[in-house]
Amino acid sequence: MTTPGAGPSGAGAGVDGVLNFRDVGGLPAGAGTTRSGVLFRSAHLARLSDQGREELRALGVRRIVDLRADDEVAFEPSRIEGLEVETLRAPLFSGPTSSFFERDATLDQLYRSLVDESSDRIVEVVRAVLETRPALVHCTAGKDRTGVIVGIMLAAAGVDEEAVVADYAATAGHLSPERNAFVLARLRRMHPEARNLEELATRSPARAMRTVLDSLTVRFGSPAGYLRAQGMSDAELADLRGALIAAPAPEHPRAEDT
Results as ranks from 00 to 15, higher is better:
residue 181 A to I: 00
residue 89 R to N: 02
residue 93 F to R: 12
residue 97 T to Y: 14
residue 143 K to I: 05
residue 189 R to M: 04
residue 138 H to K: 09
residue 147 G to P: 03
residue 187 L to T: 04
residue 209 M to E: 10
residue 160 D to V: 12
residue 149 I to R: 02
residue 211 T to A: 15
residue 199 E to W: 00
residue 198 E to M: 09
residue 96 P to N: 03
residue 212 V to R: 08
residue 156 A to T: 12
residue 184 L to Y: 03
residue 134 P to S: 09
residue 147 G to Y: 05
residue 123 V to S: 02
residue 119 S to K: 13
residue 93 F to S: 09
residue 204 S to W: 04
residue 160 D to L: 12
residue 115 V to D: 02
residue 115 V to R: 12
residue 150 V to P: 08
residue 116 D to P: 02
residue 171 T to F: 06
residue 114 L to M: 14
residue 91 P to A: 05
residue 150 V to T: 15
residue 88 L to I: 13
residue 170 A to N: 03
residue 108 D to F: 05
residue 117 E to P: 02
residue 201 A to V: 08
residue 149 I to L: 15
residue 202 T to L: 07
residue 155 A to R: 13
residue 98 S to D: 14
residue 142 G to H: 07
residue 106 T to R: 10
residue 206 A to P: 11
residue 163 A to Y: 11
residue 178 E to L: 12
residue 81 E to A: 15
residue 86 E to M: 06
residue 160 D to T: 10
residue 167 D to N: 15
residue 151 G to M: 09
residue 114 L to A: 03
residue 181 A to Y: 03
residue 83 L to A: 09
residue 210 R to P: 10
residue 116 D to M: 06
residue 93 F to Y: 14
residue 162 E to G: 11
residue 114 L to P: 09
residue 205 P to E: 10
residue 124 E to D: 12
residue 104 D to H: 12
residue 91 P to Q: 07
residue 181 A to S: 15
residue 153 M to V: 08
residue 202 T to H: 02
residue 187 L to I: 05
residue 87 T to S: 07
residue 171 T to L: 07
residue 193 E to F: 09
residue 127 R to Y: 02
residue 95 G to F: 11
residue 141 A to K: 09
residue 91 P to K: 06
residue 164 V to E: 09
residue 95 G to M: 06
residue 153 M to I: 10
residue 209 M to Y: 08
residue 204 S to V: 04
residue 170 A to G: 08
residue 150 V to Q: 09
residue 124 E to M: 12
residue 157 A to I: 11
residue 192 P to M: 10
residue 156 A to K: 13
residue 171 T to R: 04
residue 125 V to M: 01
residue 80 I to E: 01
residue 127 R to K: 13
residue 153 M to T: 09
residue 204 S to H: 05
residue 197 L to N: 02
residue 200 L to V: 03
residue 190 M to P: 00
residue 187 L to K: 07
residue 105 A to H: 07
residue 161 E to L: 14
residue 97 T to D: 11
residue 100 F to I: 10
residue 184 L to D: 01
residue 126 V to P: 06
residue 160 D to M: 10
residue 192 P to A: 12
residue 110 L to N: 02
residue 194 A to N: 06
residue 184 L to I: 14
residue 134 P to Y: 05
residue 178 E to K: 10
residue 96 P to I: 00
residue 192 P to Q: 08
residue 202 T to S: 15
residue 189 R to Y: 00
residue 119 S to Y: 09
residue 200 L to Y: 03
residue 145 R to V: 04
residue 192 P to L: 10
residue 188 R to H: 10
residue 158 G to M: 12
residue 138 H to L: 06
residue 154 L to Y: 13
residue 170 A to L: 15
residue 118 S to A: 15
residue 188 R to D: 01
residue 143 K to G: 02
residue 105 A to Q: 06
residue 205 P to M: 10
residue 155 A to F: 11
residue 86 E to D: 13
residue 171 T to W: 06
residue 191 H to T: 04
residue 210 R to D: 03
residue 172 A to T: 14
residue 127 R to A: 03
residue 165 V to P: 07
residue 129 V to E: 01
residue 115 V to Q: 04
residue 85 V to Q: 03
residue 199 E to L: 04
residue 108 D to T: 14
residue 146 T to I: 10
residue 86 E to G: 00
residue 99 S to Q: 14
residue 183 V to G: 02
residue 156 A to Q: 12
residue 142 G to A: 08
residue 97 T to K: 00
residue 144 D to I: 04
residue 107 L to E: 01
residue 87 T to A: 03
